[in-house]
Design a protein around this nucleic acid. Structure first.
Lengths: 336, 336
DNA sequence: GACACTAGTTGGAACGTTCCAAGAAGGGAA
DNA sequence: TTCCCTTCTTGGAACGTTCCAACTAGTGTC
């Protein structure tokens, strides 16, 4: 292992020029003679020189990094969003510092503090569980873009979300169009996204004159939560022929519960999810769902964040992307 | 947004002390009087002071960060490994910089360079596709721990892996114990892990006197690759009653292909995977597999890396964790 | 032969910390 | 009173960059 990490001074000495010229040359300035440039590049290569990002960020007064706080790596939809985030960040020469906060808001705050100490130029929050006050406070220091939610506003906060109520209505209307009327809903628990999806369900049921058939079971966005909720549903509302489930992960749990109860999906029981997680569209699962353009949402978020970083006072933006029905194998007309 | 970010000097001025004392106080030194400490803490809080990690890392000559290069966020097993990594890193006061390299080795190298510029104190490579020379070169600058592979060695390189050959043998022996003899193998393509798993398959078949029944189809560790390979298998070797598939993700593709071909899993055709990815143990999928202790592997990797960071010349370590058979729903005795 | 211009190059200051050697203030011992 | 010892506090140097104003050497113009 190298005893002493070479610095710009070492390169300068080796190339026989000043440190300033090395700095210039390595950043591709055109005011360096071809001869000097060559000597510098050779010296740098021979020494294995690597610029020190900390020193650069200090001298530059900018870090060229954005921070990303993700709720949880284990829900695969976040991987898809991150793909979009990394793509656009990379294209623009930004590093991405990714941190998972636990669901615990206290730990999330300390993760956030670490990102801010790194002097990130902006923050992307993916499915966070932070309070509105925290975000407002943070956004006072740094621009913030929130993905998958739009319930927090602030001068320095932009949001990228889909219209959860509209998406939920589409799901329910599709089930109705197949002939279902006993349609249950399994929620994602106590959070804004879940509330919106539930509202869409209720609205669609009302609009179709099916308010008497509204049946809601509380879930929690996990597969095991979906499994438990589905069993509850089969016990409490056996007339149900279909369920709109708050997200794909818990829809998989619902499918498992149906199978365990001897119900064939979709001939005995139809299931529709929400999100568009890549794994659920595997043929083995083939889940019908409301598909959000997840990668695109990641891209949009970075684009918006970078726009606000370069021009701080642009008006607030709240982008709503379109989610669409993804037809697959878990919905069918009800038995007669 | 604050016009000027407060620095340690601002805090010092506000608290009426020197910047040095602020530095001492905020790092919890015991040689600061209670009175000064209080004044400093109040001033820092009022100003919303945040230490600048870049400046600290420069002055300190250490970054308190480790870099993690992940092949791909979309295979959920990496999320599990990362959970272990983040846990132990966090406990030890280290930040984790996570980067996804694409499968493209050139892009992977540039991602790596970015991590090194951040002055990470060590690197964790998860399922990398880098050449042995690259890793040896890198490990000359920084300690490296490799997860899920052990085919690269070097003075400064440790590895955490499972014994892929042994795991594969367990899988095949299990199928044999159920009564199967026409057991095919679908590989993960041209890489070390895949080669080891194939060797385990061949060895187990030989040991059981089934060398005449060895049948290998090339896959690529993805679900669609598994699907394609399985269809190839059904066409070329219809006698097969079971398949050992190189990883869980492609095993899901195999299951889909079986279903599409009218084969019920497991009564008509048994499938066993490898990895232990959390989603595959969902009841809906309920995949029988060889389970690696993924979270634990992440933990071990960080522990080992930190050990080498603090004591550079300790002997090389190559930890092999035990993988075990996870019994589930996709294997059964063959039809008579 | 003086002058202006251009291309290339330079040293020093600055960025926000930590570390270090050294100073100030107060108390106790002689 | 003097001296030493603690306890607390301090300013300056250093970390590795970037930026800036200024310098040198050559080239062309009149």
């Amino acid at each position: 292992m190298a005893v002493h990490k070479p610095t710009i001074h070492d390169v300068a000495a080796k190339a026989g020029v000043s440190k300033s010229l090395v700095s210039l040359a390595l950043r591709g300035s055109d005011k360096v003679s071809a001869e000097s440039r060559l000597a510098i590049e050779n010296a740098a290569a021979e020494l294995g020189y690597r610029p020190n990002a900390a020193a650069r960020s200090l001298a530059d007064r900018r870090s060229r990094a954005i921070g990303v706080l993700v709720l949880d790596f284990n829900n695969p939809i976040f991987a898809q969003i991150l793909d979009g985030v990394q793509e656009v960040a990379g294209e623009n020469g930004y590093n991405t510092l990714i941190v998972t906060g636990s669901a615990d808001p206290v730990r999330q705050e300390s993760e956030l503090a670490r990102l801010l100490e790194f002097q990130v130029e902006g923050l992307i929050l993916i499915a966070h569980r932070l309070s509105a006050e925290t975000i407002t406070r943070i956004s006072d220091e740094r621009p913030v873009t929130i993905i998958t939610r739009n319930d927090v506003t602030g001068a320095n906060v932009d949001t990228i979300s889909n219209d959860d109520q509209a998406g939920a209505r589409i799901a329910v209307e599709y089930l109705i169009s197949l002939g279902h009327s006993h349609i249950a809903h399994i929620t994602g628990g106590d959070n804004q996204i879940s509330r919106d999806r539930e509202k869409g369900y209720r609205d669609a049921m009302h609009a179709a004159g099916l308010h008497d058939h509204i049946h809601v079971i509380v879930g929690d966005f996990t597969d095991s939560g979906g499994y438990r909720a589905a069993n509850e549903l089969f016990a409490s509302y056996p007339e149900a022929t279909a369920a709109f489930v708050a997200n794909d992960l818990s829809a998989l749990g619902v499918m498992a519960a149906a199978t365990d109860s001897g119900l064939n999906v979709p001939t005995d029981f139809s299931v529709i999810g929400y999100d568009g997680m890549a794994l659920a569209s595997l043929r083995t699962l083939n889940l019908t769902t409301i598909q959000q353009p997840l990668v695109e949402m990641g891209r949009l978020a970075v684009a918006q964040l970078l726009a606000r970083i370069s021009t701080p006072n642009i008006p607030n933006v709240s982008v709503q992307v379109d989610s669409k029905l993804h037809l697959a194998g878990t919905c069918a007309p009800p038995r007669k």
